[in-house]
Design a protein around this nucleic acid. Structure first.
Length: 889
RNA sequence: GGGCGGAUAGCUCAGUUGGGAGAGCGCCGGCCUUACAAGCCGGAGGUCGCAGGUUCAAUCCCUGUUCCGCCUACCA
């Protein structure tokens, strides 16, 4: 079968879509839960269903796709489970913004209508990110795509909620939580971002009852004083012993509050007096509980002062702050204001400053769940890679606090609870109850809160596989092989999946967790819309091709560090793709009439040419390195190996050498064996590269002569080394050719000999064996270094005018005109200087008694050999230089 | 406050049983050599953050230090 000649350069646009459809249509992405093979599975970190692909997704999914394709080619039954997340607060916010543009809001619409709107928006935009993942080449099993609000997954959510509730691991309680006044919902501790802000520290006077004496308290949030129910001092604090138990009067509201003693208070800080607002501060809340203090809320859900705020009622909390300070100043309550840097929590979705607020919420008791999750990582049941993240994981897990899971939004999984209007009983069940289980009343009202999105995400590894049903899929593919994700959701997601997986599946959700870094721009800045430095992966795909983008991301991914993406790098890998394309083009042109039948017969390695045997040996090495690197999640190493091998060994040396055989009609058998090697090595290269660059490798692979219909590189086998070609003698012989060629090229380059100028080369060597080898391989050197004529001899006369170099003890002369001798002298001088520098260091070592006696003998031997080589080389070069100088007078 | 990571060529970064450093891009010089100018050949460029210590030998191990990032946290 004759193969087609490729176009002159690679155009990704023409091939990417075509092959993606081909793979998908043929069902290559599908996992088979009935197959007997060994399995490999990954669940995708579900992107926001209404989101668009950003560069972080591109990285995350490229890495997964590389692993998945690698394993598929390695003979595994692979499941890559795709899907999307409903992203409660984020999605609700987007739709609310849309409504705002129509001068509507969700309350005027009503819950049902609003949720309809969100579903509509989901339908409308939900396909976007999936189609973008396809552009990247992601080989997910799309037939199993899931969404966290699917019926099945919702069933899992209910099941988990109910079971945890029944076990007492979910409870409902009045507690102080983080509240976002903008989103008007509770947030978990994790959803609060701590940011340092420049605020003020206000010092206020609280007078003792009917007295001129007062204590001074300091606060950053003076408006909360309206809810103060005590002033606390440290029990050890000598200054305040007398006032403990006395009462002070709050300004403005004139409420009397006690001075209490609590060891939490820092004697050193400020005046040592701390105002206590149990309803609006986490610490104060705890102290309040310990001292049985009243909890007075003064700020409402929208962040406005409420009815307990007296004259300030209805004011925004920040407005109130200004007003109250003005009033205090007037009344002499304010002593001073200091600039003060401190940390304030902000909503991770809308960046509004959160308000700690007392409210009735649902919580997961996490300590009992965290324990086995810690254990699983400690005993290696789940590995976190790179290992440094284990510490972070432990740190958080060991100090975990109860998880507030209720959200006062509409978009999400409704909490399956009902309240009896008669007796107040709380009922939790899958089905809507018709009557109170306690008093029989039918006056039931459902819970309106929904669950934290991460609650459903935590179930992802098993809910997507059909849990709570005992499916074949779960049996085959749970636990998953690896989770690939960024460190930013280690706590949000990974830790919670660990807890839930262990709890409900009785086993960890994944064997490995591979944590990659963040993609940043060239300057190391995070990509962000506000910074305006966003880079669109689809734009990069469009300009450079998906393969180039994928390879860039893989090459920049090193364990444990962020990656700085630069366009020039992606451009470079587009060049790499083009290089592969052209190398293949060369191969295919020469394989045009190659009869694949010739490949049936087996020949021993000795029958092949030196370059053939050498490249196959190098290929073995490349295969081993890529295999090992991928198994260790060292994507950069694998990429580097591929790049180096393909470009600088296969293209730079091997392809050049094949020309000797391919362009020479004599030696038909050699030519046939060369073509065979060319084809086989190219085929291996393509397969080796396929997980990284799926599109171009398929496009070329389909053009290879031995292809049958209905095949695809995607389901071809990952190459295996052929150890018959691990031959040191071959490597050594080829090494000699390469070194000699480099030396001659150096002379050409340094002496400015244009390629048109042919040279004669004289080899003088003491070793018969080396001379023979050079003779045998002279044709290679001839073509690579553009040599016209060779001379060999053990006692060759040095030509009067020539350039001179020593390689492996072989003296090499390149005769040239006298006029170039000035240049040669300079070149020699440079070489000598280099050797001098190196040998100075070595001589220092050898003159050190300690080194000779204490260093390992083989090291000493090596150094001695090097010293010998250097000195002989130097001697020869100097000799040569002296002669030239004499000659030039 | 606690923890973690980084500092190596002009730029972005590799570099593990410690034996004097590599890549890509950029730069300089030469080539349109029948796969590729998105290419080929050659070259320049580095007291490996600073100071100590261990060792025959330190970019690598230990201690301290400076600078830069990140995570985390209940000093008002």
């Amino acid at each position: 079968m004759a193969s087609k000649v490729l176009d002159k350069s690679y155009d990704p646009h023409l091939v990417e879509e075509k092959w993606y459809h081909y793979w998908e249509k043929r069902g290559y992405f599908k996992a088979d839960e009935h197959a007997e093979q060994k399995t490999y599975s990954i669940v995708i970190p579900p992107p926001n269903v209404t989101g668009v692909l950003h560069i972080g997704h591109a990285l995350n999914n490229t890495l997964q796709d590389i692993l998945v394709r690698f394993k598929r080619m390695g003979g595994y039954n692979v499941l890559w489970m795709p899907g999307t997340d409903h992203a409660g607060i984020a999605t609700q916010n987007v739709v609310e913004k849309q409504l705002l543009e129509e001068r509507l809001d969700r309350h005027s619409l009503g819950r049902e209508k609003f949720i309809e709107r969100v579903w509509k928006w989901k339908e409308q935009s939900g396909g976007t990110i999936i189609s973008q993942l396809k552009k990247l080449g992601a080989s997910c099993d799309w037939s199993r795509e899931r969404f966290t609000m699917d019926e099945g997954l919702s069933e899992a959510v209910k099941e988990v909620f109910i079971r945890l509730y029944q076990e007492g691991l979910i409870y409902r309680s009045h507690y102080i939580i983080n509240w976002c006044p903008r989103c008007q919902t509770a947030l978990s501790d994790l959803e609060v971002e701590h940011q340092e802000v420049l605020g003020k520290l206000y010092h206020l006077k609280y007078y003792f009852k009917e007295s001129d004496r007062f204590v001074i308290v300091a606060t950053t949030r003076p408006e909360t004083m309206l809810g103060d129910t005590a002033v606390a001092v440290n029990p050890e604090d000598k200054r305040y012993q007398a006032v403990i138990g006395k009462k002070v009067t709050l300004p403005v509201v004139n409420r009397e509050i006690p001075v209490i003693a609590d060891p939490y208070v820092d004697i050193e800080f400020g005046t040592g007096c701390l105002k206590i607002t149990p309803a609006h501060d986490f610490n104060d809340f705890e102290i309040g509980l310990n001292h049985d203090l009243e909890q007075i809320k003064v700020i409402d859900e929208a962040g406005r002062m409420n009815e307990n705020a007296g004259p300030y009622q209805g004011m925004d909390r920040f407005e109130c702050r200004e007003q109250i300070i003005e009033d205090f100043e007037r009344d002499g309550v304010l002593i001073k204001i200091e600039d003060y840097r401190h940390v304030v929590g902000h909503c991770y979705r809308c960046k509004t400053a959160v308000e700690p607020n007392l409210s009735l919420q649902w919580f997961v008791k996490t300590k009992p769940l965290a324990k086995p999750a810690i254990e699983a990582v400690r005993n290696g049941n789940t590995r976190i890679i790179p290992e440094v993240w284990e510490k972070t994981y432990f740190e958080w897990m060991e100090n975990i606090r109860d998880w507030c899971i209720s959200r006062q939004i509409w978009w999400g999984h409704r909490i399956p609870a009902w309240y009896c209007g008669q007796c107040g009983e709380v009922m939790v069940s899958k089905e809507t109850p018709t009557a109170c289980s306690k008093c029989g009343s039918n006056r039931l009202t459902p819970e309106t809160d929904v669950l934290d999105t991460w609650f459903s995400s935590a179930l992802w590894p098993f809910s997507t596989m059909g849990w709570p049903k005992e499916t074949k899929l779960l049996k085959q593919f749970y636990p998953t092989s690896v989770l690939v994700t960024g460190f930013d959701i280690l706590f949000f997601w990974v830790a919670r999946m660990m807890m839930m997986g262990l709890k409900f599946m009785g086993d960890v959700p994944f064997r490995d967790v591979y944590i990659h870094g963040l993609v940043r721009d060239e300057r190391g800045e995070k990509y962000s819309k506000t910074r305006g430095n966003v880079i669109d992966p689809l734009d990069l795909i469009d300009r450079f091709g998906a393969d180039a983008l994928r390879f860039t991301l893989a090459a920049l991914t090193m364990p444990g560090s962020d990656l700085k993406l630069s366009e020039s790098r992606t451009e470079g890998y587009r060049h790499f793709a083009n290089k592969i394309w052209n190398a293949s083009r060369f191969a295919l042109m020469n394989l045009d009439h190659f009869n694949v039948e010739e490949m049936i017969e087996e020949y021993p390695p000795e029958e092949f040419s030196l370059p053939d045997r050498w490249i196959r040996g190098r290929l073995n090495q490349a295969i081993r390195e890529v295999q090992k690197s991928l198994e260790d999640y060292k994507f950069n190493e694998a990429s580097h190996t591929l790049y180096q091998f393909i470009w600088h060994e296969f293209c730079d040396w091997y392809l050049e050498l094949t020309k000797l055989y391919l362009y020479n009609e004599e030696g038909k058998k050699r030519q046939s064996l060369t073509k065979r090697t060319l084809l086989e090595v190219l085929d291996s290269i393509l397969r080796l590269l396929h997980p990284f660059m799926p599109f171009i490798t398929e496009e070329i692979w389909q053009q290879l002569p031995q292809r049958k219909e209905n095949e695809s590189i995607m389901i071809a086998k990952f190459p295996k080394p052929d150890d018959r070609y691990d031959d040191e003698a071959v490597a050594d012989e080829m090494g000699l050719i390469i070194e000699v060629t480099n030396a001659l090229r150096n002379i050409r380059g340094e002496m400015n000999l244009p390629p048109g100028e042919q040279i004669t080369v004289l080899f003088r060597t003491k070793s018969e064996e080396v001379e023979e080898r050079l003779q045998e391989n002279q044709s290679f050197i001839q073509s690579l270094a553009l040599v016209q004529k060779f001379k060999f001899g053990r006692d060759l006369e040095k030509p009067l005018y020539s350039a001179f170099v020593v390689v492996r003890g072989v003296e090499i002369f390149v005769p040239m005109e006298r006029s170039r001798m000035e240049e040669e002298a300079k070149r020699l001088q440079k070489e000598i200087l280099k050797i001098e520098k190196e040998s100075a260091f070595i001589m220092k070592k050898l003159s050190n008694e300690q080194f000779l006696s204490k260093a390992p003998p083989e090291i000493v031997r090596e150094v001695k050999e090097k010293a010998l080589e250097f000195s002989s080389q130097r001697e020869k070069l100097e000799e040569s230089l002296v002669k030239i100088k004499e000659m030039l007078g």
